[in-house]
């Protein structure tokens, strides 16, 4: 490690000095984003737009915490890969499950019957 051109010990030292301030700033930023999220849900925009905004804001918060508070930014790349294996797999599984259960064929009978009843009442 120490014979690489850019010794991590020195680089780390420089980073440590400014870390305290950086942590506080990031925490403030996260608090502001949370505030924005709460404000966003009251806005009169299309649902898809609001969902996108909320998801993006959450992802930004998520990434700040894992890369700064959890040090991924300063750690070996392998830690990031390791965590993202689980994260991506979990995300993919969630997506697939929601797609499966969102499909028309998966609507539970109790709900479907109600919908049909509502429709027939309309007719």
């Amino acid at each position: 490690m120490s014979d690489s051109a850019h010794s991590p010990a020195t680089a780390g030292h420089v980073a440590e000095e400014s870390k305290f301030a950086a942590y506080v700033q990031i925490a403030m930023l996260l608090a502001v984003i949370t505030g924005v999220e709460i404000a966003v849900i009251g806005l009169p925009f299309a649902t898809w737009l609001l969902v996108t905004v909320l998801v993006v804001l959450s992802v930004v918060k998520f990434m700040f915490v894992i890369f700064y508070f959890m040090h991924l930014r300063w750690d070996k790349l392998f830690c990031t890969i390791l965590f993202f294996i689980g994260l991506i797999l979990a995300g993919g599984t969630m997506w697939a499950l929601l797609k499966l259960f969102g499909a028309e064929a998966s609507v539970p009978l109790s709900v479907a019957v109600n919908t049909v009843a509502d429709l027939s009442r309309l007719v």
């Binding site: 390791l82 689980g86 797999l89 979990a90 599984t93």
Partner: peptide
């Protein structure tokens, strides 16, 4: 934590 992602994901 990678494992816990699946835990909370489910």
């Amino acid at each position: 934590l990678a494992s816990d992602c699946m835990f909370f994901g489910t």
